[in-house]
Structures are given as C-alpha cells and as structure tokens.
Amino acid sequence: MSKTGIFVGIDGGSQTTKVVVTAGGKVLAKKFAYTDFDAKDAASAALSEALAEAGLGMDDVAAIAATGTNRQLIDFANSYVNEIVADAAGVHHVLPGMSMILDMGAEGSRAIDLDENGAAKTYEINDRCASGAGTFIETCARALEITPADMGELSLHYTKDIPMKAQCVVFVESEVISLIHQKESKENIARGVLMGISTRLGSMFRRLGIREGIAFVGWPANNVGLVKCLEEDLGQKITVPEDPEYICALGAALCAEKAAKKKEAEA
C-alpha cells in the first residue's frame, strides 16, 4: 500500500496545529496553522501548505496519523496516536538515548519517563491548571508588554531573584503588574515568572524520579530563559531538539510508518 512511502503526522494542539511530512524517517516539510475555532480546518490548511512545499499532492500520501488534544476532530486521519507515544517516538528518532521528556503545550504539560528502548514507561500530566502551561508565560509576557521569546532573553540578564508569591495565572498577572508599578526591572520579573513555572514543571519530574538525560519539546522549549531556569531547577543540562514544536507531530508520522510496515510484513 505505501508505494510512495510518504507519511504525515498531525499534532492538533489547543493553540496551533502542526503538520510534518516524512519519508523513510526523513522530514520533507513541516508547517503549522493556528487552531482557532476549527481544528480540522487548521489541519487541512497546514497539510496543504506542507505538501506544496514538499512538491507533493494528497495522492502521494500513504497514511496520516493524528495526535494531540484535538486529534479526534481531524477526521481525515487514518489513525490516531496518543501524544505520549508520539512524543516518545519523535524524541527517540531525533535524540536517541534520552531518559525523560518534557512536552509543554499552550494548555498543558507532561513529563514522560522512558524505558531503555525509548518508549514511554510512566508519565505525569497537568492539563487542567494553567500554572504549568505555555499560556502562563504568554499571559505574563503580555502584562510585561513583550513577547514570550523576549521574556526568555531578558530573564538571562536578571540581577536579583524575586520569587512570585502566587502560582495561579490570574494572581501572578496582578503580581507582575504591581511589580511593574514598583519599578522592578523587566529582567527580574521575567526571571521570577520563569523560575516559578520551572519549579512546577520540575515537580512533575521529582514525582517520577529525576534521571539524567531530559529532552524538552513543544513550543515553549524555544524559550532560552525557560530552559535555563529548568536546568537550574532540575540540576542538569536540558536538551532541546531542533524545531521542538514539531517533535510530537513527527512522532505521529513515524508511528504511521511503523504501523504500515508491520501491516505489510503481516500481509
């Protein structure tokens, strides 16, 4: 069936929908679209763009696997992959030998403990409280009138640790605003916010038992300040792959290919 050998992974996230087009484990194209109100529309749009970039058409695709919060809404997918499984597959492919994964999304985060083959063993998930999610950083960045990326950069130049008293986004937002009024520097506030969220993310790993070799994927993994704070909290170097936001989608594509090969072998 997979004459073309083209496999697509779609990660339907709450904020963005990511598409990766692969062949034989190699990435041919990747694109994203804002999920907005229609996850299926976003997935179709990102898919057409990605295929166009790779110079391919829909007919060339052997199979599509969907993952992420909105995976079930992407009804043109041929199969559905749990995001924990997809994360593990994606990380194993680009960074073999990792022992744990942090995947942070807009509305949730998960810490995954891997076995010696790179498959998911156990995990901790937080997707019901925004205090450990990308939204938290975005809200605080908005209060500081900067982008989340700038917030990361600025935080590297902090001069003083000012721990946030609150943890709930709603309360931290007002804490940030009152710190601005008190003329606290943006660098120090940014650092305080990122350190707070890192402690909460770190605690997911402490519950699992921290091991050496942690990969960080998802959009917030591009935030250098957050990575720095996490490294301090977890006491080790954190590895961020290239384009960390596409790792889960890549994992889904790899799962689709693996399933197709298995089916072929059986047939």
Partner: peptide, 17 residues
C-alpha cells in the same frame, strides 16, 4: 467544565460562539 479560570474563559468564549 474547566476549573481553571484561564481555561474557563476559553470555554466561555467557545460557548458564546
């Protein structure tokens, strides 16, 4: 259904739509 205020706001926006 969302307990978190931030997520409830998103849910409310969707309900209005």
């Amino acid at each position: 259904s969302s307990m978190c205020v931030v997520f409830a706001k998103a849910e409310v926006a969707a309900l209005m739509r």
